Amino acid sequence: MAKKYPCLLPKAGLVIDLGAAPGGWSQVASPKLGSKGHVIALDLLPILPIARNVTVLQGDFLSSSVQAELEHVIATSAASRQKHSATTSDNTETEHSSGGAVPRVDTILSDMMANMSGIRVRDIEASLELCQTALSFAQGRLKTGLTKQIESEGEEKKALSLKDYKGCMLIKFFQHPLLSEFKKKQLQPVFEKVLVEKPKESRSESSEAYFVCLGYKGE
């Protein structure tokens, strides 16, 4: 998926990896972002050190203390990348709130999955709840817009490639009709393009798949 959707892991980008343990996605992201990029890997479970450009945080990302720590790491990373980047305008995109300017991130990866109970309805509901939680977390944190300016709507549809989007998200889920409604009513209104991927590496009988959300529109 990283090869198919290069905008997920842009060079020198800032990426948050939710549900990161044991660290596989961060391991893939680290070299693709390069030495000027940064991955923040977050999970309830401990994660062994991965690379110099990967910061590991342990805890519940919904807790205020972990979110405060996360915001501090994002702000520190954004300031450092701005200082060392020749293209500062792309790295300093912020959202102004009552608490001040909050740096935006390029991508949020959500590999979170609930503990399976074996009861399909309950497991599907848990999967949907995590998707909704990840989306709520992403809103206001992702960059917006495109990497190039398009003059008209018609030209935009023809000219955009899969590397032209800013503010992207990848969400793991269990396939179920309820998730189609989630895609239509909650994802499509806030992203320019939303696709569903089932990687070849997943077992054919598995219902595990991913929402690939490209081009965050903002609130």
Rank of each mutant, 00 (worst) to 15 (best):
K3D: 11
K4F: 05
A12W: 12
L14S: 05
I16N: 00
I16F: 03
A21F: 06
A21R: 09
G23P: 08
W25S: 01
Q27T: 12
A29W: 05
K32Q: 15
L33T: 02
V39E: 08
I40Q: 03
A41E: 00
A41M: 03
D43T: 06
L45N: 11
I47P: 01
L48H: 12
P49W: 07
R52T: 13
V54T: 01
T55H: 04
L57W: 02
G59Y: 05
F61K: 11
S63G: 05
S64G: 03
S65H: 15
S65C: 15
A68H: 11
A68N: 14
E69C: 15
V73A: 09
V73N: 06
I74N: 04
Q82L: 13
K83T: 12
K83Q: 11
T92Q: 15
E93G: 14
E95G: 15
H96N: 14
G99N: 09
A101N: 15
V102Y: 05
V102W: 07
P103G: 10
P103E: 11
V105R: 03
V105T: 03
D106E: 07
D106I: 09
S110K: 07
D111C: 01
D111R: 04
M112A: 07
R120N: 13
R122G: 08
E125P: 04
A126F: 04
C131S: 06
Q132F: 04
L135K: 03
S136P: 02
S136G: 08
A138H: 00
K143I: 05
T144W: 13
K148V: 10
K148Q: 12
Q149K: 14
E153G: 06
G154L: 11
L160V: 09
K166C: 06
M169G: 06
L170D: 01
I171N: 00
F173L: 01
H176M: 00
H176W: 00
H176D: 05
F182K: 04
L187H: 00
Q188G: 08
Q188E: 13
E192F: 10
K198F: 02
S204E: 15
E205V: 04
A209M: 06
V212K: 04
G215C: 05
Y216F: 03
